[in-house]
Nucleic acid binder design. Structure first.
Lengths: 189, 189
DNA sequence: TATTTAAACTACATTATGTCCTTTATCTTT
DNA sequence: AAAGATAAAGGACATAATGTAGTTTAAATA
């Protein structure tokens, strides 16, 4: 199955889009393979030619989102100041979400944040650990570097999630201001 | 259906235990109602007399865990210092997990932390918000009180999760020491 | 335009679900 | 301890969804 074949691309896109649309209405578990196929105007046998079940489709869709976030994060590579790095990380993250609001909202609604957290958290966590390795951060006397990272990634991510909530009163700029205030300047100590 | 009837209690317990055992082997999605019933030696029609599907069973099991954590957290009610409150919160949380290690490990394995996060996060978040209301915390000039709470609950929870990881090198005391160091003393400012 | 290959169509076997009814066993109550 | 109540077991069935296979049709590639 040639993944560059236009027909393949079309069907996969149709499946992705239909899946995210259906997730606006119901839980992933309630969605049947036949539902997706009917709405996407794709034959069910074609579906099974690509994916062995709906979980594989979801995983593929999620991987796409992850990949695009990862590539956006590459812009954040050469920042030496840690606080600045975090603020930039979260700014990229918020932009990413804003641009794909439709998809992320579908995922959030009725899916209890879990998938959301899986998607994003993996990527952010991975990026922070990449940075840790690159800088060869030594552990402070008091706290190992990766624990320090866990602390701030958890904090920052959790605040950022407020932005995603339906009818959130906060703008992207609000969130960034709050974090600017909350993250200490001497975060590396 | 009388929930105090010994027969009811027995079957429900059997279902809970079997479900968590099966989750050591496979994803929740892969587990079929008939799998649970066979292993639990419960007739499938009996299952349906209690729950309309496996999701209801899982929800019930999760609610049990939440309830026990909630009741343990009541001990943390009358602490005025915020930092102390957080440290105590996480200490109770770590003990809770330690005592039910089997169940939580089953949940963690193959379920990508999601359920875990749903279970625990809800309860901790709820507790912090309860405290916020009780203290009638006023917003600081810079950051709303609930954002401040999000920041530290995310931080603290994420560090605590390290303790749950398989083969974690950290003891409960390590985690608490790290947090003691990372949480500022003047957290209310 | 010829060739390749993905998608559509059709049919089928299998599994899991959810419901219903009857019988049996167990718990509660007095 | 016995009677009555009710939960569990057992069996049967209709339905829905899955996953697979083979053939035909349509679309993309080279």
């Amino acid at each position: 199955m040639n993944k560059n074949d236009l027909r393949v691309i079309k069907t996969k896109n149709a499946l992705f889009e239909t899946l995210t649309n259906l997730m606006k209405e119901k839980t992933f578990e309630e969605i049947k393979v036949s539902d997706i196929c009917n709405k996407a105007l794709i034959n069910r046998s074609t579906f099974y030619a690509h994916y062995s079940d709906k979980y594989e489709l979801l995983a593929d869709a999620i991987q796409n989102l992850k990949n695009s976030l990862i590539s956006e994060l590459k812009a954040n590579n050469n920042i030496s100041n840690t606080k600045e790095y975090y603020l930039n990380l979260i700014s990229i993250f918020l932009n990413h979400i804003e641009n794909k609001k439709d998809i992320y909202l579908s995922i959030m609604i009725n899916n209890r944040n879990s998938i959301m957290i899986d998607i994003i958290y993996d990527v952010l966590d991975h990026d922070v650990n990449r940075r840790l390795k690159e800088l060869e951060k030594k552990d402070t006397q008091k706290v190992p570097a990766n624990i320090l990272a866990k602390f701030y990634i958890g904090a920052v991510f959790n605040v950022a999630l407020e932005f995603l909530k339906k009818d959130s009163p906060y703008t992207k700029e609000d969130i960034l201001n709050y974090l600017d205030y909350l993250i200490p300047n001497n975060i590396d100590m």
